[in-house]
Amino acid sequence: MNENLVIIDATPIKINKYYDWLSQSPIDGAIVTFTGKVRSEQEKVQSLYLEHYHGMTETVMVKIMDEARQRWQINRAIIVHRIGHILANELIVFVGVSSLHRLEAFMSTQFIMDKLKNDVPLWKKEKTLYEESWVEAKKSDRDSLKKWY
């Protein structure tokens, strides 16, 4: 039942069908998911533009899920990432893991997100009412990765 699924899509993420895929394994008692949205404080950010390196993006995502499998006993794992123009409050990313028990699913979902933030070749450009600017990589994301090594 060890299966990875990677979806890179320019259309809105429909969580239900991916959740259904995650829940197909009868031996699993746990499913943990994470959903990331376009955040806009005081409606400042209008939209994001997400650019990716086709090919390397998918390869790195699979590598991250395989690294999670070496650490925890998990069965189904999925990463769905939106690219292109994304409006405020829409979903950017969906990560999910199924496993026998909850601890493995919780830990591996967090690990996959921390790795994704640091290793997957994706770049965000933020659009406000007045300007467009590329988002800089954050130290807090690099720090989040340190706990795993």
Partner: peptide, 28 residues
């Protein structure tokens, strides 16, 4: 990245390689 694998500045590039330059990533 060379052939879609992150490398450092000492990596030797061969004929036919695909090389990519990009900023630190900001997905998720």
């Amino acid at each position: 990245a060379v052939n879609q694998i992150l490398v450092d500045d000492t990596h030797l590039i061969d004929n036919g390689d695909e090389v990519a330059f990009f900023p630190p990533v900001t997905g998720g």
